[in-house]
């Protein structure tokens, strides 16, 4: 556990050195800021961050792969994976360390949006419960997105390839499934509705604590972290 945290700290610190992270962070905050002032922060409007949460969730489909792509790809490309994996640290510790590190950076990104909440408290009476649930939903959604990104990063030494694969996977579950729910014939739309990440997320954004969503996000996180560990392990055998 200690080594996991050591690695997590190193990863998190790495984000604050890399320009890519600042660019992504700035873009994310810029777009959510525009969204906030354009759609929500209007006199007479409902004091709720819900539309912003939904927009942020869609942004994460593209933002998360960009922040996770280098995690293992870069180690594989530069060969540091060799020094890392010959240190007394298990594959699970490596994956968990990286995961916690990115989640730290993700939390920093989210924390930047608290400004909007503060503005709303200053000019209106937003529902605190909804805000708390919204952020919880963002964290849950983020953890499953990050685990997908981590997994694809373990697959290849090319960062861009990793990013493209994870954008594809995330888009299928966040956007594609919604389309399937709407347009696919009978048994398929039913099936799609169970793996549609956005329905689960929207419940949280509305201020609902939905255990189905909790289970969905946590189990996908677990699944992709498991797959990442196995992919990393399999590198030894090739």
């Amino acid at each position: 556990m200690r080594k996991t945290l050591i690695l997590a700290r190193k990863e998190l610190a790495g984000y604050f050195i890399s320009p890519v992270a600042y660019v992504i962070g700035a873009l994310f905050l810029l777009v959510s800021g525009v969204w906030f002032f354009h759609k929500i922060f209007i006199p007479g409007n409902e004091a709720s961050l819900r539309p912003l949460f939904e927009a942020m969730a869609y942004m994460m489909v593209f933002a998360v792969p960009l922040i996770t792509m280098r995690l293992l790809s870069e180690e594989l490309r530069s060969g540091t994976v060799e020094t890392l994996m010959t240190a007394p640290i298990t594959d699970t510790e490596v994956i968990m360390g990286k995961f916690i590190g990115v989640m730290g950076f993700y939390a920093v990104l989210l924390a930047g949006t608290i400004v909007f909440l503060a503005l709303m408290y200053a000019y209106g009476q937003p529902d605190s419960g909804v805000a708390v649930m919204g952020y919880l939903g963002m964290v849950l959604l983020g953890s499953s997105f990050v685990s997908v990104g981590l997994f694809t990063s373990a697959l290849t030494k090319h960062q861009l390839v990793a990013a493209m694969i994870s954008v594809t996977i995330l888009a299928i579950f966040a956007i594609g499934m919604q389309e399937m729910v709407a347009y696919a014939p009978s048994p398929w739309n039913e099936l799609a509705s169970h793996v549609n990440a956005m329905t689960y997320f929207k419940d949280f954004a509305r201020g609902m604590f939905d255990t189905r969503g909790l289970v969905f996000f946590l189990s996908t996180t677990g699944l992709f972290l498991f797959l990442s560990v196995k992919t990393l392990e399999s590198r030894r055998w090739r």
Partner: peptide
């Protein structure tokens, strides 16, 4: 070839 994290 001693691989490193160049930013560290």
């Amino acid at each position: 070839a001693v691989p490193f994290y160049p930013e560290m």
